[in-house]
Nucleic acid binder design. Sequence first.
DNA 1: CGGTTCCGGCTGGAGTTCCAACTTATAGGA
DNA 2: TCCTATAAGTTGGAACTCCAGCCGGAACCG
Lengths: 249, 249
Amino acid sequence: MASSDPVYLRIVEDLRRQIIDGTLPPGALIPSRAQLTRRYGVGETAARHALRVLAAEGLIVGRVGSGHYVRPRPVLVPLHRARWSDHHAPLAADLAPYGVDVTWVWRLERGVASRGIAERLRLREAAPVVRARYLFRSNGKPVQLAFSYEPADLAPPPPDQAMPAEGSNGRQGVIARMAAAGLTVSEIVESVRTRIPEPAERDALDLPAGVNVLHVERTHLAGDRPVETSDIVMSGDRFRVVYNLPVRP
Amino acid sequence: MASSDPVYLRIVEDLRRQIIDGTLPPGALIPSRAQLTRRYGVGETAARHALRVLAAEGLIVGRVGSGHYVRPRPVLVPLHRARWSDHHAPLAADLAPYGVDVTWVWRLERGVASRGIAERLRLREAAPVVRARYLFRSNGKPVQLAFSYEPADLAPPPPDQAMPAEGSNGRQGVIARMAAAGLTVSEIVESVRTRIPEPAERDALDLPAGVNVLHVERTHLAGDRPVETSDIVMSGDRFRVVYNLPVRP
DNA sequence: CGGTTCCGGCTGGAGTTCCAACTTATAGGA
DNA sequence: TCCTATAAGTTGGAACTCCAGCCGGAACCG
């Protein structure tokens, strides 16, 4: 079976091993398509596909006109395979392309960091922050309420004149914006718990009395700097995720 | 910018729209590479790439010698984009290929369903179940304890003679086994909370007194039938996930 | 009439080629 | 010495091609 494996897999495994064991250290230049083609005695298709796979895994990054380089730090979990938050804050954004009816509205506000937020963002208390409030609806029914806080000085800065801004759909989360800037983002999940909703939350989520909500506190870092922290409140302490499994990944 | 988008994206978006709005109902045959090539006036590369992307998204499935078909039920969240459990039970399995030192041992036991487990698996109390106990270690330090329960009659059945079986690494979780069987698996997360660890857990995880553990109760369904339920206990109520973002997905 | 064979169509792996856009280094000119 | 123009190398998008293996239906034969 191993002998009938696709040719490009041999290159992928070989390079991956070298990256993991340090033969190709972070920042190292990966052989170019032409070099791989000669070295492994394969066609350019195979070399190209191998590089694409490694790039998709996050182990290397390609720069047009320059080459493929080993990513500066070891990849633990590539985003596309493991996003803790997929079922929380960005739920709507991820489901929308699949025809699930999810809509959301958001509002941006300037404010100052409370004690807790300041701690999570490693700011001094009362430092200026931008708060976004999201309300997600599925089939008209409100299902999720989220607040995200970002340091006000963060690039790219939020629109200054138009504050407070509002909208429905479309606002990119910090992950997408950091990714666009080519940054490595990490995530700290500080707490996941169920609790009794506050009156305002019960109101927004249109909940009957006596039910609990799922509460997630989450912070995103770019390098070592916290760039966003969020409080996510979902209706009910019991939720369900349905997916189809690709028969062959 | 839209005009400079890759050619294949036009095909992807067009077909995706048709799948979502029902023009191409579940089970429908997708135009073949040759047909797409003619219909959209593009090369075979673009047609092929479009089909590959849709297949990766889980919207269609290719059958060699036959064609590409719309998947039988709407995909909500493709597994590779959203696995709630990636940071819980299968953590080790996902991290291992990236050179992170994670090892685990497991042990299989036959037993009978307690009241709670019976409820979650929709079995009568004291029905026969198979219990697997996992202990995950990172750099030698125990980080996660998990118990999974499956109905004993479930296919593929656990090894009967070798019970109780033990091992280190290698045991496939129910998701992988169901995927291999081509089944759609859904997941219910019943509860996520932090709590005081029980003495046995504190012992296994080598925890100092006074810290909390993160506790997740999770059930997997194949269609409507529960096929596994698990209790996951992680050391600490604060954990961190690090990933690199592909600059362009 | 029923079973078997055969052929056309399809996927998926692989190779080859071309080109635009970009980076980098080098050589030459001010 | 410093700046600029040029050339070589690289990625990424795309087209075209070939082939093995598989599927399904149609034709054919007993």
